[in-house]
Amino acid sequence: MAYQVLGHIADLRLKVLAKNKEELFKQALKGMAEVLKEKLPEKEKILKEIAVDSADQTSLLVDFLNEVLYDAYANKAVFQAVEFEVFEKNKLKGKIFGYKVKKGFDKDIKAVTYHGAEIKKTDGNFEVILIFDI
């Protein structure tokens, strides 16, 4: 399944498509990683634990990505993969994996917004469009 970076007048839109919700979260994370750093220097690995709880599943996705974004800036790293130990409607727990970046990021994502975000099921797949404040 896939993600696609789309335009937005001021910011960036990420369209994500996956066969299940867990995969949707994983693809959204990959998409965000690509926006932060197109070519990852795969030298120094980094792993962090993550736990998020939210009001609903769409909020959980946005909050999860914002949590990863904080970890990215705090550790000067890009996280592009996740393994979930808990994945529920409004709660998740797991580990995120990535690489340290020495020369900074390509783009400054200020935050992942909730604007217009809604996880939808279409033709047996799950889809969401997220707006990143750039």
Binding site: S54, A55, S59, D63, N66, L69, Y70, Y73, K110, A111, Y114, D133
Partner: peptide
């Protein structure tokens, strides 16, 4: 900078709840 971005992120989440 990231300081203000994080304040907004934190409080939008709180407000939604």
């Amino acid at each position: 900078r990231g300081f203000g971005h994080q304040i907004a992120t934190d409080y939008i989440k709180i407000m939604l709840r």
